[in-house]
Design a protein around this nucleic acid. Sequence first.
DNA 1: AGCGTGACAAGGT
DNA 2: GACCTTGCCACGC
Length: 111
Amino acid sequence: MDTSNETPSEKIKAIHGVVKCIPAGKVASYGQVAALAGLPGRARLAGKALGVTINGQVIPWYRVLRSDGKIAFPNNSSHYKMQIAQLQDEGVLVTKGKVNMQLFQWSGELE
DNA sequence: AGCGTGACAAGGT
DNA sequence: GACCTTGCCACGC
C-alpha cells in the first residue's frame, strides 16, 4: 500500500511545487519549504532540489533562504548577488546578506 | 558496506 | 555574534 514509494525525483518535484507557490515579496526557509512539501526535517533535500532547478528552470529559488534569513551562498558569489538583486526587486529588504524573516517570511498559504 | 559531503536546522560554548 | 556539534537524509567513492 501506501509505502511511500516515491523516488527522490518525486520529492524534488514536490519541493519545486512549493517554491513556485511562494508569492513575490515573500521568502521561505529551506526547512519550511521541505515541510510544506511533505518532507519535514529534510531541509538539505530542499537545497539539493533547488540546486538541480537553478540551472534554467522558472523556479524562484531566490525566495528561499536559511532559517536565519541568511543567503545560502558564499558571500560575493554570483548566485549570492543575483539572489539579493531579485529579492530587492520584489520589495524584500536585504541587510548584510540577511533578510528580516519577521517581516518577509511566507506564511505558507496563498492569499 | 563504511565514510565523507552537502543551497539545512537547532542548540551549546 | 562567531564557531562547533549533533541530527537528518541522499549521493558518490
